[in-house]
Design a protein around this nucleic acid. Structure first.
Lengths: 225, 225
DNA sequence: AATTATATTTAACAATCTTTAACGCGATTT
DNA sequence: AAATCGCGTTAAAGATTGTTAAATATAATT
């Protein structure tokens, strides 16, 4: 989960932002002044900072400057009521990545955050490489399901589905979710295609008594280990 | 020198921008409509694109979208007179990096450009001259794939494709993306040509059990290391 | 310019992957 | 209990990819 540091003294705005970002799957720590925010920054690990320029105790620029002394790369976005040229330029000089003036549109802020993270995360695409299923090892990259001599070469769809089941092991994997992500569609016809693949996976895994793909009627499937 | 592509139909603004950026040590190619700009983009190499949204022949969003099909990483900044929410969001959805509304301050634009480039250059996106593939070394410049005695002289297309696979190692290399960049086209017939080259590369790499080019059905290929 | 060599594309067929169709069974609802 | 719905399974149809060889295009050489 992406962690965001929010430095904002306005209670309403801070609360609003935190909740909005939470809904968008960002974990946000909210500090209401610059000093606390800096303490928080050195303690935790953040993927992005959202900093209001005008704050009591320590203003946003000062905070950003301090953050930059200990971290030169974390993305910083300034929030401000003032749209004066000098302020904007000051923000960029310090090493900010973006500058957005109040009142701003939440969705625009979200897109700006995502635009910056997209660039940062360019090479940060982490996915587990192997899963252990009883005696079998599932190599996601190579699309192999193997145990000693026995090696099943999986097709793309088999592999995608098995990976999704593994990610939700012992939990329900919803039909619609799987269909929308793997098949990019969830109409009735495509749904039958998924059933065919479930059958195929069950065949591969039938040698493993401890592993089972069970059906949750009307909802989806569950990989039980 | 950093090269900027400027797509702007307004003569005065275009001229002004080009001169301003030149003074700031950016080499700028200015195209006054979207179609010319796209032609220019595929011909040359640019570090950043500055695109006016409203242009004749081909508007800025359409241009950006075309650019994104052949280049997923070049930074794009939109310029526009409209500050409507929908427009801004559209720009980010396409994969833009920033969006600035006219009339804008030249200095602010400059800072935004620098903020983005700073981040891009941080990510160390230089392209290596050598890749290591198991026991083989792939020399991009000389188009050689060698290990001790064994040396494969690669043809241009073989080399371009292998390089592209290496740049996306362990990630999906989309068919269309490869076709558009290497073959400058992505029709059905050309696509088969790519398959032939995949076969050739697999032959060269078959001595290396740890290296494999796997197919992602309907999407592209992945070099797994 | 003609010839040779090399690189790339096209064509053809085989193999593999994915979807669709069909039928049967069991679960759920009426 | 009958009817409906969702799922399990298999086989065939449809699409994509793998591979080889011949045809064409491009480059190098005579």
């Amino acid at each position: 989960m992406t962690k965001i540091l929010l430095a904002e003294d306005d209670e309403n705005l801070g609360d609003l932002l935190k909740n909005y970002l939470k809904a968008k799957m960002f974990e946000t720590d909210w500090y209401d002044n610059g000093e606390l925010a800096f303490d928080g920054f050195r303690r935790g690990h953040y993927d992005l900072c959202l900093i209001d320029v005008m704050m009591p105790v320590k203003d946003g620029f000062a905070l950003a400057q301090e953050i930059r002394t200990i971290n030169k790369s974390v993305p910083i976005i300034f929030l401000t009521a003032r749209s004066m040229k000098e302020d904007v330029l000051e923000g960029f000089k310090i090493g900010g990545d973006d500058y957005i003036t109040k009142p701003f549109d939440m969705e625009e802020l979200l897109f700006r955050i995502e635009a910056i993270l997209r660039r940062v995360n360019n090479d940060n695409q982490f996915t587990p490489l192997y899963y252990t299923l009883g005696k079998y090892t599932f190599d996601v990259q190579k699309q192999l399901l193997q145990y000693g001599e026995t090696v099943h070469k999986l097709t793309t769809k088999e592999s995608e589905l098995l990976k999704m089941l593994c990610d939700n092991a012992n939990q329900l994997l919803e039909r619609n979710y799987a269909l929308k992500t793997i098949w990019a569609d969830d109409n009735m016809w495509v749904a039958r295609s998924m059933d065919v693949y479930i059958t195929k996976l069950r065949k591969y895994l039938k040698d493993e008594p401890n592993i089972e793909i069970i059906n949750v009627h009307g909802k989806g499937f569950k990989l039980v280990i």
